[in-house]
Design a protein around this nucleic acid. Structure first.
Length: 557
RNA sequence: GCUCCCAUAGUUCAACGGAUAGAACGCAAGCUUCCGAAGCUUGUAAUGUAGGUUCGAUUCCUACUGGGAGCACCA
């Protein structure tokens, strides 16, 4: 039934006839870049010509001849130096799109990971510190990856790991105590950490006091400090929740460094075969694995971030029997994570092969501002607020009933798209001006195309028109692109690359807009049903695709 | 010093080792008596340098140049 698999198998059989033995997985059969070549293309004839002892084109001809006809494929031709191009039978394409309309929200989904349990850890902000724009990157990517995996049938749990202990807490509390704050507001917290951090660096007296305060926070010896700590922590976490709501993320599990530390220490101490004493600390010597040495327990007997990571893995496994836990973390942690992963592989054998990480890039501004080192940290809220304000200019004149809500959705869509449109791990150069323009290669462009298709379909439904594909008609570029949705989603999931979906959607929206500009959809003819069906499946594809990206898809804007 | 990552139009991004390297912004010129102009159409312009592997290299390997990150008790 699946023509793609069918083509692969036939090619394998045909190659065997001429003495080249390969398996289905050796066949590279991909979507064509240029639709004028067909829908799928393979270069097997080029790749195996030498082995078969014939010229590429000749081999291609032999392959095509021995393949015969393939169900779902209407045309097979040989092009260029020996590519074999396959064009889908429009009837097959329409059948697929028809099914898509029936599937609605499930269009594009699959079952390849059915039964798999996965835990995705991302965002990881620290209480007492601001949620800065850098956190938007792993949050956006992690959310999209979670959705992609869910869409392929996996059971996905979202996890957030937060640093609720450490010197940053002491820096914040130091300032709060100095100001005599007993009931901190979110504004107090926002200013306390940066101020404490500055004092720590500039004022030796303050540094000493903060270090002592840090110990008191650890051993919980002072009631007043304990109370202030508890309030600040709760306030921070509640504030993060408000942002998650705006961003469209809901976490299933929260882990804290205050909990992972002790467990980590226990794990490290239990594996003297993996970890060793060195200069009073307990370290893992990564050199024998081509890595470097890292300290897991410092000479004071306290767990470092490394040991905590072991504790975290253990805690995750206790909460949820995952097949895989994926941590989304920053590029700068890549080397550190390699070492910790190796250490965990050796010390936590039951979790071997179930722990993975992926690193994301930094968000920077094109105009060079931001940079926490210069002190001007821009928070996630501020950025969203700025964009929302800009989006209001249009939203207030839009068809949306709630302009504020729409502006927020557009702002989030604009930011997320900038992050998602490029490959994982690359730094994101955020151009304020461009993002604010809300035009072109952007989130709002996708949202607009979705709103537009929604409006057309709604209007058509109002006329009582039958939404139905004319399966006897030819397949336009737009229709053929729509068919590709499943394939794109599968690849994006396998590679954990949301940008493949983002790029696809932009091309799809452009194809639709272009088609729309040249077509009268509700033209009163019999063809109108067909055109409405195309619009409707475009709407559904954009909607599902935007959902996969975690970008809101308003129906009116 | 050692290790890792990156380098594509003026700018920001695409391109399973394949065909004519795609978009967007910018700039230039157009499109609205008609379903949504946050839109459409046309033009402009790029693979850092030198080698190598391959039928074929933006993609893989080596060197160089230019950026970024990491490298013992921070996270």
């Amino acid at each position: 039934m699946d023509p793609v698999l069918n083509v692969r198998e036939k090619l394998v059989d045909a190659l065997k006839d001429i003495g080249v033995s390969i398996t289905v997985t050796d066949i590279t059969l991909g979507l064509t870049d240029n639709l004028s070549f067909g829908d799928y293309a393979t270069s097997v004839a080029l790749a195996y010509a030498k082995e078969a002892g014939v010229k590429p084109r000749e081999l291609a001809e032999k392959l095509v001849a021995s393949m015969g006809s393939v169900e779902g494929i209407s045309k097979i031709d040989i092009a260029g130096p020996g590519f074999i191009n396959f064009t889908l039978d429009p009837r097959f394409v329409y059948k697929s799109l028809e099914a898509g309309l029936m599937q609605e929200e499930q269009w594009g989904s699959g079952l390849s990971r059915k039964g798999k349990k996965m835990m995705i850890e991302y965002t990881d902000p620290n209480p007492f510190k601001e949620f800065h724009i850098g956190h938007l990157v792993p949050n956006t990517l992690g959310e999209s990856i979670s959705r992609l995996l869910m869409f392929s049938g996996a059971e996905v749990k979202r996890a957030n790991y937060q640093g609720d202990v450490g010197i940053h807490v002491a820096k914040s509390l130091f300032i709060q105590l100095e100001k005599g704050i007993t009931d901190p507001t979110i504004e107090d917290l926002a200013s306390a950490y940066p101020e404490g951090s500055r004092r720590y660096d500039e004022d030796p007296e303050a540094k000493k006091a903060i270090d002592e305060l840090n110990k008191k926070i650890y051993d919980k010896s002072d009631e007043k400090i304990n109370a202030l700590y508890a309030k600040g922590r709760a306030l921070s976490l509640a504030h993060f929740e408000e942002l998650y709501k705006v961003l469209g993320t809901t976490f299933d599990y929260y882990f804290f460094e205050s909990e992972t530390g002790p467990i980590g220490v226990k794990e490290v101490r239990a594996h003297p075969d993996v970890f060793e004493e060195s200069e009073g600390a307990v370290v893992f010597k990564g050199e024998k694995y081509g890595l470097h040495t890292r300290v897991f327990i410092n000479k004071l007997g306290l767990p470092t971030y490394e040991a905590k990571e072991l504790g975290l893995a253990r805690m995750k496994a206790e909460k949820y029997q995952f097949d895989l836990t994926l941590t989304i973390t920053a590029n700068e942690q890549a080397e550190y994570f390699k070492v910790v992963m190796k250490a965990m592989e050796l010390s936590l054998p039951d979790l071997r092969g179930k722990l993975a990480f992926k690193t994301n890039g930094l968000l920077r501004f094109a105009d060079g501002k931001m940079s926490s080192r210069l002190g001007n940290i821009i928070t996630g809220e501020e950025l969203i607020g700025d964009l929302k304000e800009k989006a209001m200019e249009r939203a207030s004149k839009s068809r949306a009933t709630d302009a504020q809500k729409l502006a927020g959705e557009v702002a989030v869509g604009a930011i997320k798209y900038q992050i998602l449109k490029q490959g994982f791990g690359k730094d994101i150069i955020f151009d304020r001006e461009r993002a604010l323009s809300l035009e072109g290669d952007s989130g709002p462009y996708l949202q607009y195309a979705h709103a537009r298709t929604s409006a057309i379909v709604e209007k058509a439904r109002g006329t009582g028109i039958v939404v139905k594909f004319d399966t006897a008609s030819g397949a336009s570029e737009l229709v053929r692109r729509l068919y590709r949705f499943n394939e794109i989603v599968m690849r994006a999931t396998d590679e954990l690359e949301p940008h493949l979906v983002a790029t696809y959607l932009i091309n799809l929206a452009a194809a639709f807009n272009s088609w729309y500009a040249n077509e009268q959809i509700l033209d009163g003819t019999l063809g109108a049903s067909h055109k409405v069906a195309i619009t409707d499946i475009t709407r559904q594809t954009l909607k599902n695709g935007l959902w996969l990206l975690g970008i809101p898809a308003p129906e009116k804007m």
